[in-house]
Design a protein around this nucleic acid. Structure first.
Lengths: 333, 333
DNA sequence: TTGAAAGCGCTAACAG
DNA sequence: CTGTTAGCGCTTTCAA
């Protein structure tokens, strides 16, 4: 076993100091005389001593580890968020334990409990949906939590996101100004807070404000083939403009339209409510609400570092600006 | 602090047993009388006791945590691999610490050392490139390592991948049979083992075997815009068939061709050497080597669990079958 | 500026 | 089947 043969004790013995002093050197404590520090450092290098983070964690009650809860890593939306989180975590020397929870044995509150058992110093929660049990689990603990790229009814949880309502309204307006009046909303999941409390109300309000009738909301349209298959229904319902929550779904609709010979954007306009790389590489390129995913992740992680250090927070709910990227799937008159 | 107020000691006292017994029931040890077990369990539930995984890790020298080293999470290639890993990790109750190493402060060997300090029970390494220092770091430790979706010159490291040489040869043959003779190879990084030792030799051999001359190898073409910009060079060089390592790059070439009015596949055929979701949603859809990424990840993680349990391994180098998916970017005569 | 000593919460012999 | 007793490797008072 070469795994961990040299401990702080070995270093102490070789350097003829106490463990406490080695600990001080390792942790950059200034209360060590310069020559003592150098002597210890020399031994550390000679022995290739590396601190055991688990023992440090147990003794200090800080693991310099944060937990990430994410529905699905292969959804670029979350991958891009994660990248922002990861970069800032690296900067502040935190490791990341990642837990995916997509349609699985693993429920949200179990994921949380698992992370808590590992004694993470904080948690970033990225799923659209925060079930009541998960919220309860968060409330029971002192471990700080930040929601990234999503919203919750629980105002007590710090979050970083965009103004979904405003973004959707702006998108609908773009379609409307292009002369499209049979507008539809295509949702992945109608029950998430973002959809139920932001997108749907925004849509309904817009339709009412412009006397466009009830409109059409399509739910549980989650992937490329769902979108592809939805297309004929859209045509049947006379839809000429559509907002789609996921861009991969929007691509499905787009491809179905192309295959059917429908002219985009002339006969139908498409806007996706969350742009990842995919939205920009398909042809025609998709008009999209560009959420600053990397930044949302980065800001969320930065916020979490503050919470973990018990620093003062000026604002718990952070809203970042989005962009409406006008591409080829809308006329943009 | 509600964080960790109740310990195994509290449970022991309340249940009128020793810590050892509580530990036994927590760990499912069978040497506990049924009624004792139930009594302890009752107290555990009443007190909402949760074991401190850090303390468990220190005492048992097993953290039930594995480290993942990945270049870039937003590259779907790695995201899909990760998903396979994650699912099997969940099955075996391991947590995952993820470390990205793309063009950053964090070098491979530092990432490894960081994971080792956290006392991970094993490591899965997914980067195409295994620098010498990283290989050295792996050799110095007893912590098992598995390479997933990549190859190394170091035969001592267990790995799970496909036969890149065979896959590329088959792809080249497809182009050749379609009548394309000016074949090119477009690489992300010419120095990775997969490319240097597998793809390039396969390409050179194929060209030589079929008297197609020297051919053209384009290097450091890594993303959509690299691919897009490369297109005119390809035309200039008279290329009519191309194998591209990354599918996002292939999409760049495809889009440039489309924008230039080049007919795909008539005037140019494209095959991507690694298919992610992107390859199938663009139009024309890309002919692709479909590596079973999810499976590669899953098998790699399963292999790692065996190594972590010191089980017998029959084969350290596992090769999984790939498929050559013929789509619209090749004629497929 | 340094050291001694008491844990952190748990596991794992070893006895009984 | 259960309890006692050492630690695991480190941090952190408290004294000196």
């Amino acid at each position: 076993m070469r795994k961990q043969d040299i401990t702080i004790y070995d270093v102490a013995r070789e350097a003829k100091v106490s463990m406490a002093t080695v600990s001080r050197v390792v942790n950059g404590n200034t209360n060590v005389r310069k020559d003592t520090r150098e002597r210890v450092l020399k031994v550390i290098n000679r022995l290739h001593y590396q601190p055991n983070a688990v023992a440090q964690g147990l003794a200090s009650k800080r693991t310099t580890t944060v937990g990430l809860i994410v529905p699905d890593l292969t959804n670029l939306y979350f991958a891009e968020l994660s990248k922002g989180i990861d970069d800032i975590a690296l900067l502040y020397k935190y490791n990341i334990i990642i837990t995916s929870i997509e349609n699985r044995l693993m429920k949200e509150d179990q994921a949380i409990q698992g992370l808590l058992n590992k004694q993470v110093d904080g948690i970033i929660y990225m799923s659209d949906n925060l079930p009541e049990e998960a919220a309860e689990a968060f409330k029971r603990t002192d471990t700080p939590v930040v929601l990234a790229g999503t919203k919750s009814n629980h105002q007590e949880f710090p979050s970083v996101a965009i103004d979904y309502m405003k973004a959707d309204t702006e998108s609908l307006n773009l379609l409307y100004n292009d002369g499209k009046k049979n507008l539809a909303l295509v949702l992945d999941d109608p029950d998430t807070v973002v959809n139920a409390e932001n997108r749907i109300p925004a849509y309904k309000k817009f339709m009412a404000d412009h006397n466009l009738g009830e409109g059409h909301i399509y739910s549980n349209i989650k992937d490329h083939s769902d979108g592809y298959n939805l297309y004929s229904q859209l045509r049947q319902d006379g839809i000429d403009g559509v907002i789609v929550t996921r861009d991969i779904t929007a691509v499905g609709i787009l491809n179905a339209a192309t295959d059917a010979g429908t002219k985009i954007p002339e006969e139908m306009e498409i806007v996706t409510a969350s742009a990842t790389q995919i939205a920009s590489v398909v042809r025609p390129a998709l008009t999209a609400i560009r959420q600053p995913l990397y930044d949302i992740g980065a800001v969320a992680m930065r916020l979490l570092t503050k919470l973990m250090n018990n620093e003062e927070i000026d604002k718990k709910q952070i809203e970042l600006p989005y962009e409406l990227l006008k591409k080829q799937s809308t006329a943009n008159k």
